[in-house]
């Protein structure tokens, strides 16, 4: 991932800045700049998510791509934020502690990097709330 590609998503990745459609009230994370419900009648504004939610489903990744092999085994989950939207993120916890329905909150963590000399990717992971 190029420096620019990572850099332009820093607010979203570091601080869970998503969006909200003022017209219909829906929240979006990952952020959308076009409301799928209101389409051209929607009005999208930025929204910082509180960062708390519930695990909908999860897995423990034991075979990863080269970039994430160092971190195996790691817990990956789909989390429903309290405002409604769902996202995919890692949970920092021992694999045996992850479960469906688990309450979690956001933390700022290293996610990966572009090889040994490339940009270090930071972002949001979750821990037990």
């Amino acid at each position: 991932m190029s420096v620019a590609r990572f850099w332009r998503k820093i607010p979203q990745r570091y601080n869970l800045i998503g969006t909200r459609c003022v017209a219909c009230g829906r929240y979006f994370f990952p952020p959308r700049s076009f409301c799928p419900s209101c389409r051209r009648n929607g009005k999208i504004i930025d929204y910082q998510f509180k960062g708390e939610g519930t695990v909908i489903t999860y897995t423990v990744i034991r075979t990863a791509s080269d970039q994430f092999e160092y971190a195996t085994p790691y817990v990956l989950a789909i989390i429903q934020l309290d405002e409604g939207p769902r996202l995919t993120a890692q949970i920092s916890c021992p694999p045996e502690e992850a479960h469906i329905g688990m309450r979690v909150k956001k933390v700022f963590r290293r996610i990966g990097s572009d090889g040994k000399s490339g940009v270090i990717h930071y972002g949001t992971k979750f821990v037990a709330a």
Partner: peptide
């Protein structure tokens, strides 16, 4: 928003399976 977080293809289908 999936791959960046460490999602693999088996991982995504595994989450379907768990659900």
């Amino acid at each position: 928003w999936e791959g960046f977080m460490g999602a693999t293809f088996p991982g995504l289908y595994a989450m379907i399976a768990h659900d």
